[in-house]
């Protein structure tokens, strides 16, 4: 898209007063978004004695990184006192394959359902999208029994399968709404030239799909990383995911609460997701711009 036609240029506020307003509104929104983070960071830096005696929200009188250190490698989670650090690997070996697999399948589905509009394609799309709304708590038991029947009970492969399948409705939705805007002439032309289904997919669709693929990766990685219901049901002991370990650390009901540790631990547990945001963030917005596909 030529720069002089960029719509954001066309409508961008230019008057100084308007621009000042713009930053004020963004600033207020930013404060709203940052308030809980501020509470969490401040709490994580206070000693627990101070939190107990001086109240739960407050400016630290003593700054300490003890809670961060404990959350990373010292805190006891049940009978193991190694903090969250041992569990990151478990989450990564589940989240990375499941994210990639569900994104790839979502792309294939979106492509097949928009560019090869065989009879019933729309009905299938609706069928898949309705999967977004399945209340997962209700299907935990049949899911466990099915995995067991497949020989995948209590294994990371079972979890990868579950996360991939329940991610498909969303990833298919993303890719469908992206590909619907890709001019069909491109596909038709390739078809005329004798390219088959898979060649068109890999040579034409995949190269223009990076932006939406990044949206899908962000969505799936975030969701899988933080998933608890299946994660807790289908992993054991040392193979637990970070989210399950975090839950075990912070979600005690009858035990003594260590709010500083809770906050530090949750921020540490979120780091890989934030890294993914930073890693793909730039790529994915710039990519989408470059894609400049008509809606």
């Amino acid at each position: 898209m030529p720069a002089d036609l960029n719509p954001s240029e066309m409508v961008a506020a230019r008057r100084p007063a308007t621009r000042a307003m713009l930053y004020v509104v963004l600033g207020i929104l930013g404060l709203f978004f940052l308030a809980p983070l501020a509470v969490m960071v401040l709490t994580s830096l206070r000693p627990i004695e101070e939190i107990r005696s001086a109240g739960i929200i407050g400016i630290p009188q003593t700054l300490t990184l003890d809670a961060w250190r404990a959350a990373w490698s010292q805190a006891c989670i049940a009978a193991v006192c190694e903090g969250l650090q041992p569990y990151f690997r478990n989450s990564l070996v589940i989240a990375i394959p499941a994210t990639l697999l569900s994104t790839l399948l979502g792309a294939i589905n979106g492509y097949a359902l928009t560019k090869f509009r065989f009879p019933g394609a729309d009905a299938i799309m609706v069928l898949i999208i309705l999967g977004c709304f399945l209340p997962l708590q209700a299907v935990l038991i049949p899911a466990a029994q099915t995995l067991s029947a497949l020989g995948l009970a209590n294994s990371i492969y079972g979890l990868i399968l579950i996360y991939t399948v329940y991610g498909l409705p969303f990833t298919t939705l993303f890719f469908r709404n992206y590909y619907v805007g890709v001019p069909s002439e491109i596909v038709r032309a390739a078809h005329m030239d004798g390219a088959g289904f898979w060649r068109i997919f890999f040579q034409i669709m995949v190269p223009i799909s990076w932006p939406i693929a990044m949206v899908s990766v962000v969505f799936q990685f975030t969701g899988i990383w933080n998933e608890f219901l299946f994660g807790v049901s289908f992993t054991t002991g040392a193979s637990q995911t970070v989210t399950v370990a975090l839950n075990n650390l912070v979600n005690t009901t009858f035990g003594v609460k260590q709010y500083n540790l809770d906050m530090a631990a949750s921020l540490i547990a979120a780091l890989p997701v934030l890294i993914v945001y930073l890693f793909v963030g730039r790529f994915f917005v710039r990519g989408l711009t470059a894609g400049s596909i008509k809606g």
């Binding site: 006891c76 989670i77 049940a78 009978a79 650390l249 035990g255 260590q258």
Partner: peptide, 11 residues
């Protein structure tokens, strides 16, 4: 579910 503090120590 005895995961933290005294609970964990007891386990």
């Amino acid at each position: 579910y005895w995961t933290s503090g005294g609970e964990a120590a007891a386990v």
